[in-house]
Design a protein around this nucleic acid. Sequence first.
DNA 1: CATCGAGATTGGATCGTTCAAGGCGGCGAG
DNA 2: CTCGCCGCCTTGAACGATCCAATCTCGATG
Lengths: 329, 329
Amino acid sequence: MGEKVTIATVARHAQVSRQTVSNVLNAPHIVREDTRQRVREAIAALGYRANQAARQMRTGRSRLIAVRIEPTRDGINGSVLDRFLHGLTETADAGGYRVLLYTARDDDQEIATYDALLGAYDLDAFVLTGTKHGDPRTAWLAEREVPFVTFGRPWDTPDAHPWVDVDGAAGTAQATRHLLAAGHRRIAFLGWPAGSGVGDDRRAGWRTTMAEVGLDSAAADRATEDGIAEGARELRTLLALDAPPTAVVCASDSLALGAWQAARETATDVAVVGFDDTPVAAAVGLSSVSQPLGEAAARCVELLTGLLDGQQRDPQLLLSPSLVLRHTA
Amino acid sequence: MGEKVTIATVARHAQVSRQTVSNVLNAPHIVREDTRQRVREAIAALGYRANQAARQMRTGRSRLIAVRIEPTRDGINGSVLDRFLHGLTETADAGGYRVLLYTARDDDQEIATYDALLGAYDLDAFVLTGTKHGDPRTAWLAEREVPFVTFGRPWDTPDAHPWVDVDGAAGTAQATRHLLAAGHRRIAFLGWPAGSGVGDDRRAGWRTTMAEVGLDSAAADRATEDGIAEGARELRTLLALDAPPTAVVCASDSLALGAWQAARETATDVAVVGFDDTPVAAAVGLSSVSQPLGEAAARCVELLTGLLDGQQRDPQLLLSPSLVLRHTA
DNA sequence: CATCGAGATTGGATCGTTCAAGGCGGCGAG
DNA sequence: CTCGCCGCCTTGAACGATCCAATCTCGATG
């Protein structure tokens, strides 16, 4: 098996200088057609691959993008990350970038990791999944002018940095409209305590849709921590109302699954729609709002590569989820 | 913000040569105690971080490990990868390595990716999740002496390369013993068609355990493709037997979920145990055999770093799964 | 025919690190 | 006293790419 093929090997083989080979790779338009052709053939014949380390040392860019992989919190909602990562990797590959993983227990440690990765590997960019109010991580990155995109809107200052997100309100609105069309009038919402951007957004979609058709919603609005048991508990309180709901829109599949199980236990016919279209929803036949994760990932990468290659494009993007109907609604 | 800190900056600050700084980092024992101390202080004071690209160019090693992220096949079983990846990333970080992702549609493309990654990034090692009979990927890697570990045994030639795996037979055996202890005698197995190493292994655990207590198992052995519908279908055929089983051990949570649903529909009391302890199992309360994924990942990394740093250790490792009891068994 | 200039090509320097070889002072042995 | 060795440190070169400035080529032009 041959000794390693460098740019010099290619140059010799194609009877040109190193610089010409480099130009063919990085600025093809300034090389004469036939020369370019000859160099390309030599590259193919020798199986030459540019050494990233050498390129990186000179240019300071690594063509590496970092993403955090989280400790699979819940399990039921956690597996969403999986699909996102896959999309990210695929799109990045297509653009000549690679995806590097990192973990962190908290924000401070995550910032320390940024520092380490930037220092040692010259990372080109970061993708953050989810942001919260007053996120220290985005501030740190922005201050140092490190390119990054978040999957999830910044809830305080909408234009602070590039982001891609899925329109949660549109998702719950769609679910609510579907239930209305099916004849339901008393439609409840099962969500998280006010204060989380994502949760409030999902609640808003339901509330405004109800208001649009002149239905009052205040009494049928529930807020609780995420979880199956919590979903079941809240559904029972809803059923205890004078005018119990005939359908429930939920902020997560965990809550939806709990609600569905509770409804079935009490032999009550209640339509349920979850959120995220997790494997669990698919497995038990739960209708759910599905996020276009692959597309979201692709857009994140496109935004980043656009940023890195200098071409500015619209740095904010809101995607629409779709409703997956199964047998619970 | 300061200009970049290189090894030369540290050397000047500590009043030594570049090489001495390098030695403190890579071979501390050959540097005198007080000098070492002085250099370490300078490193800390300046916030120096070794530039990976430069190091890599010289040594040909990148401290990068690649893992394939799969296209989330089923969904129900797919989310296992997530936990494995997290464990991998965490352990790798601790050992000073980073994890790089890649995708591939088929074996040929995967091999092409190996080539590309090795050529451009000087990858140190690969982690493969799952192997099949006569896997071309392991052959390719072995031929080129690229370090790699598989999560999953090679079924043809057990000692061909380093691997970590979970003892599937032990898992189904444990499940079967649990059911026996609970008084069951007619215990069926719901698995995949013979020929897949993993599937045959899981079946064997059940069969030998049954044989040990003198119970015949042939009639209650079912083989089908993976899936919820398939699990439900097979359970119905089992219930149609003259002596229907009172319990079923399954090769996957998909099959188990299908079986459980079918059993409940027909109002038959059948104990069900799944395999993999997926989020779905947790959500619906399905008992399942749980693989120690975090530990498996950690061992994979340890094996690799051991290999890379020259110290040989036992290159094959079989971990024991554990039975998670919920309310289906 | 000499000159010009645009475009293509060339050689040298450079990025930050590690490797290979060599220097220097002190200690023990001949 | 001298030599050799050893421990500790320093110097020069190299890894493979890109950037920069200088040079070459060649057709067009005065």
